[in-house]
Amino acid sequence: MANQATPGAVANTHVRYLLTKAGLAAGGLATRGADNQWEATQDFFGNKCAYTGEDLTGKPIDKDHAIALNRVSGGLHVFGNVVPSTPKANAQKSGRRYDDFLRSKGEKFDSIAHLTDEQREAAIARIEAFMQQARPDGLLKPHPELLAFYETQYQKAKELCATGAQELEELLNKLNLAAAPLLNEAVAADEATLDLPSVEQFELEETGADNLPEAYRQIQARSYEMNVGAYAQAVFAQLFADGTIAKFLPNLTYREDLCTFALKLSFPPLITRRQDAPTRYYATPYRHNGTEYYLCSQWYERNREPLSNWLTEMVFAQRA
């Protein structure tokens, strides 16, 4: 049977969203450019799995959070907490801390069964040395106030689900549309006899509701692996490539226009004369109808969400 979206699952999604925001505020993980932190991470571990010690050259590599990305552990997607792992070790580690996982034994942890106790402790020490080197500011240590905040947000989200369900039941009853009580578990229909939408289907249809073409959905899907400047460049490269940019060019080349305010930039998103402000615009131009346009380079994390919203709410809002 397909999985039902539950208040706990919704609350966990909310907490993951907050953890993602916290990670971005703390610098995130750079995966491109001269300061490629993911490459530096792999170099530190000798291109081996941080847990099993397996050589990962030419093999699939998972980015695993040493301190789990959940409300209990408060791990963040930042340089110092993301380590290379085999897919199997990553799956078996699940939501455990790196040290708890490496000290775990039994059939369900067969990915690390070959390690001696000394090798397990050495792997823990290696990960902790990496954390200290990458984040000497202490960010990766447990912060009681942050953990309390995540727990509070989790409970609030669950309460919101319960309140919404109660209000929905009242509205359905008012409209004579309720086939069965929503909140009375004793008389609720047996879920085993029903076909319920899966979490994956919810996510698929929520994405479709944004009305974004596939190319843009792919860009958004990997947007949090990029710094915000790279994300903006990927978006505008696609807009120019498929010609969607055409009807927005007049708006994007004036600072006072609605698009500039929507994107929360301090300068026009696009100009045609980079020599007027060379430090504020990327050097590589985009071309449309014989004219070269230069993209503003002054993107900060505060611009990431406005850029995504601009795409879904303005650029592609009218698509069927």
Rank of each mutant, 00 (worst) to 15 (best):
E159Y: 03
D190R: 02
P285L: 06
A277Y: 11
A237D: 14
C161M: 02
P285G: 08
L194N: 00
E205L: 09
A283R: 02
A262N: 10
R255L: 01
L177V: 02
G229H: 12
L172K: 07
A241C: 07
A209M: 10
N227P: 13
E159V: 05
S198T: 01
F236Y: 14
E206A: 10
L270V: 07
L171T: 06
L265P: 00
L183Q: 05
Q238W: 10
L168M: 13
Y224L: 13
Y154P: 08
V187I: 12
L204G: 03
Q166F: 05
E205T: 11
Q233F: 12
P213Q: 00
A165R: 01
H288P: 10
I245D: 03
L175R: 14
R255H: 07
V199P: 03
I219D: 02
Q233S: 13
I219H: 03
Y286G: 08
F267R: 14
R274M: 02
M226Q: 11
E206F: 13
I219S: 02
S198D: 06
A165L: 12
G229F: 09
N184Q: 09
I245F: 07
A186S: 06
F149D: 08
A178K: 10
P269L: 14
E214S: 05
E191Q: 13
K247W: 11
L252W: 03
A192S: 15
L263G: 03
D276W: 14
T279R: 15
L183S: 00
K247Q: 15
I219E: 11
N184K: 07
T284C: 04
Q155F: 03
Q238P: 04
I271H: 11
L175G: 11
V235D: 01
A283L: 01
T244R: 13
E203T: 00
Q155G: 02
V235N: 01
G208S: 04
S223G: 15
F236L: 04
T207I: 02
A283M: 00
T207G: 02
G164W: 03
A234E: 09
P278S: 15
A237G: 06
P268N: 03
A178N: 01
L265D: 00
A283I: 06
N173T: 06
T272C: 04
A246G: 13
L258R: 15
S266D: 15
G243I: 14
F149V: 04
N176A: 10
T152H: 07
K174N: 01
A232M: 00
Y224M: 11
K158W: 04
T152P: 00
E170R: 05
A241N: 10
L270C: 12
R273C: 12
Y286T: 08
V199I: 12
R274L: 10
R274E: 14
A157G: 06
Q201R: 02
Q201W: 00
I245P: 08
R222Q: 09
A283N: 10
E200Q: 02
E200K: 05
K174S: 04
L265Y: 07
L249P: 13
C259W: 08
Q201K: 01
T207P: 00
R217Y: 10
L249W: 12
F236K: 09
Y150I: 01
L175A: 14
Q166H: 09
Y231H: 01
R222S: 11
F248H: 15
G243A: 13
T253C: 06
P278H: 14
Q153C: 05
Q201M: 06
P268C: 07
N176V: 06
L258N: 12
I245Q: 01
Y286E: 13
Q275I: 14
I219K: 10
E206V: 05
A221Y: 08
A179M: 09
L175S: 11
